[in-house]
Amino acid sequence: MAFTFAAFCYILALILTAVLIFFVIFHIIAFDELKTDYKNPIDQCNSLNPLVIPEYAIHVFFTVLFLFAGQIGTVIFNLPLIVYHVRRYLNRPVMSGMGLYDPTTIMNADELGRAQKEGWVKLGFYLISFFYYLYSMIYVLVSSTA
């Protein structure tokens, strides 16, 4: 059992994915609050927007690490989400600050629905990734022993 770079990547990705899961849960809760009138959209956007780039960055970060570690399968697994993130960010509304969410349009039912759907899908994706990384980590650790 040798602690390879790939194993390190998986461990790191495991932790970061846990972080991402928290992010996405926050995201889901936030939009749920919006939908149920608990929160003011301005405040909600102000709290959501700063998290967008970090989330994307974390995801890109460990994907790049996987690339360096030669885990091409894992990279391909993550690639669609990266592409989606980039596209999403390029098509964001005109904003001076960071982020995606515009308080003036966020209350549109389409936008809300999309954001909520996105949250759930991402939560699923990150959960799957989490277990996938866990499995891969063990696999890498075990296989490198052999």
Binding site: L34, K35, D37, N40, P41, P103, M107, N108, A109
Partner: peptide, 13 residues
């Protein structure tokens, strides 16, 4: 309500 049209700020649903 799905979408609002006009001049205003939508504060909740």
């Amino acid at each position: 309500i799905h979408t609002f049209h006009g001049n205003f700020f939508v504060r909740s649903t």
